[in-house]
């Protein structure tokens, strides 16, 4: 499942370029300006994506021992 790491490209793309497509105050989403809500959603998704990558990364199989590749 090495290909799962490519998911890490999504947060930078969404935050840097996606924001341009959602750049408005209205409609309010979750009570927040649209563009702020977009960024918040991506902060949360970043965490989820990193958790997925962590789970499938063979480097993390050896517990907390450290320098395994």
């Amino acid at each position: 499942m090495k290909s799962i790491r490519w998911l890490a490209l999504l947060p930078p793309l969404a935050i840097l370029f996606g924001s341009a497509f959602f750049n408005s105050v209205e409609p309010l989403v979750f009570g927040m300006p649209l563009v702020l809500a977009w960024l918040v959603i991506w902060v949360i998704l970043t965490s989820a994506i990193m958790a997925l990558i962590f789970a499938y990364d063979p480097a993390n199989k050896g517990g907390d021992a450290g320098a395994k590749q």
């Binding site: 947060p11 930078p12 702020l36 960024l39 918040v40 902060v43 994506i49």
Partner: peptide
């Protein structure tokens, strides 16, 4: 709010 996420990735 945005830059930290990219830094952590």
């Amino acid at each position: 709010l945005a830059y930290g996420s990219l830094a952590y990735v």
